[in-house]
């Protein structure tokens, strides 16, 4: 009755609310944790100590190099047709402006195609992208590629409508990628409201001028660590189920949702198993990744270091789309493995979270999945996730202890049962 015991302890028993309370203490103490920052170093040190205090096994830090981008002071002001402050968040990896800033006329476009069709107008201007929010995966292209696409047509900077499904004049940051051979121009996100304002002004033929100041600096890569702890398997200790979330965040809000919740339910999974005196046949390994926001930097180095052991990697699990009320699990693997995972999900009938969906997702586990290892990701009611994502709104206030209890129960039952089956998942 292991599954029922886990559910009872996580949702109704003495461990209820523990992951929430641990997370609150952590983010209230440390704050946000951008790659290369002192806060991230403190966070890793904090977790290293906390996991040891929790009496987990093989607590260790695995050294990696991560980007170190610093935002600096930044501001934007619409000068014409009237003065208006624009709330902005510079994008990770962006170059800064000259000290005096950049003052230029604006061209507003709603798509890359429109930018191409109006390329003659864009030279020497600031490109404002007012792309509609379709889905995160589709719309985020404007954030990651917007600067280089604008630079190709001679723009001097780009301002991109935040990738947000709801806005209260809140800018959302994120990583952006410069293309090789294309000039690097400053790039930031503006709010949905300001993007739409400038689009309306522009559609009326009104000339818009914006002053942009960004003090962003790219430092040399910094030392960082993936944080690891285990419950060592009793029969096949060399075989591993990974449960994971990422410890780094953006430099706004508290990083409580992205991905504090995912990291802390993953820690909770090991705590629950330990509390119940369970010892699966295989090793359950907690990995708290670093440098995820810059493109899975810590996890890619982990993969390179450990891929020689891929034969023993049973299942890789990642929670990185919030810990709202869970609705099931996403899974990528062979049909035979899916049948087994469907059976495992039935064990969660007492809390009515039994659905298995397709297509596990998660930057940090993608390297393993692409190499054929079965992968699973927590699916929750993420309808509000992109309201807060990469914004000052990503705070503890978004989190809910009851939802986290349920997430922890789902996470733990799946990790434990898969790790304890007599055989590894087919692949």
């Amino acid at each position: 009755d292991a599954a029922k015991s886990i559910i009872d302890l996580a949702v109704y028993g003495s461990a209820q609310n523990r992951s929430y309370e641990r997370l609150a203490l952590f983010v209230d103490t440390i704050g946000n944790r951008v790659s290369g920052s002192d806060n991230l170093k403190k966070a890793i040190k904090y977790m290293y100590s906390a996991l040891q205090d929790d009496k987990l096994q093989n607590v260790s830090l695995e050294s990696v190099k991560v980007p170190h981008w610093e935002r600096g002071k930044e501001s934007a002001m619409m000068l014409q047709p009237r003065q208006k402050n624009l709330a902005i968040l510079g994008l990770g990896g962006s170059v800064g402006t000259p000290p005096e800033g950049i003052s230029a006329e604006v061209i507003v476009v709603s798509s890359f195609a429109e930018l191409q069709s109006r390329e003659q107008e864009a030279k020497g201007k600031i490109v404002v992208y007012n792309q509609p929010y379709v889905s995160y995966g589709e719309t985020v292209q404007y954030r990651s590629r917007g600067a280089s696409e604008a630079a190709k047509v001679g723009a001097v900077a780009s301002l991109i409508r935040s990738v947000a499904s709801l806005s209260i004049n809140s800018p959302h940051t994120g990583w952006q990628d410069y293309q090789n051979g294309v000039p690097k121009i400053p790039t930031a996100c503006i709010t949905v409201e300001d993007a739409e304002l400038m689009a309306r002004l522009s559609s009326r033929g009104v000339k818009i001028v914006v002053q942009l100041n960004m003090g962003a600096v790219q430092h040399p890569d910094a030392d960082s660590f993936n944080t690891v702890a285990e419950i060592v398997g009793s029969k096949y200790p060399e075989q591993v189920v990974i449960v994971s979330g990422h410890l780094d965040s953006w430099d706004v809000g508290q990083g409580a949702m992205d991905d504090g919740g995912g990291a802390f339910i993953s820690w909770e999974a090991l705590s629950l198993i330990r509390d119940l005196g369970l010892r699966p046949k295989r090793t359950i390994r907690l990995v708290l990744w670093t440098g995820e926001e810059e493109g899975g930097v810590g996890s890619s180095q982990y993969y390179e270091r450990h891929k020689k052991d891929i034969r023993n990697m049973d299942l890789v699990m990642e929670s990185d789309i919030g810990t709202f009320m869970p609705v099931g699990m996403q899974f990528s693997g062979k049909p035979e493995a899916r049948v087994i995972m469907s059976e495992v999900m039935k064990l969660l009938a007492p809390i009515n979270i039994t659905k298995l969906y397709d297509n596990a997702e998660g930057t940090d586990i993608s390297f393993w999945m692409q190499a054929g290892v079965p992968g699973a990701s927590l699916l929750d009611d993420a309808s509000r996730y992109f309201w807060f994502h990469h914004s000052e709104g990503d705070t503890m206030t978004v989190q809910n202890p009851i939802w986290m209890n349920h997430c922890a129960a789902v996470w733990t039952v799946v990790a434990y049962v898969v790790a304890d089956l007599e055989e590894m998942l087919p692949r």
């Binding site: 009755d1 049948v339 087994i340 059976e343 049962v417 087919p426």
Partner: peptide, 23 residues
């Protein structure tokens, strides 16, 4: 029958029974 990389239906049934044992 077992395919080279697959799992036989009999084996799958046995694993399903094993999973059910964790209720």
């Amino acid at each position: 029958t077992d395919s080279q990389h697959g799992v036989s239906s009999r084996k799958l049934e046995r694993i399903k029974e094993e999973v059910a044992g964790y209720k």
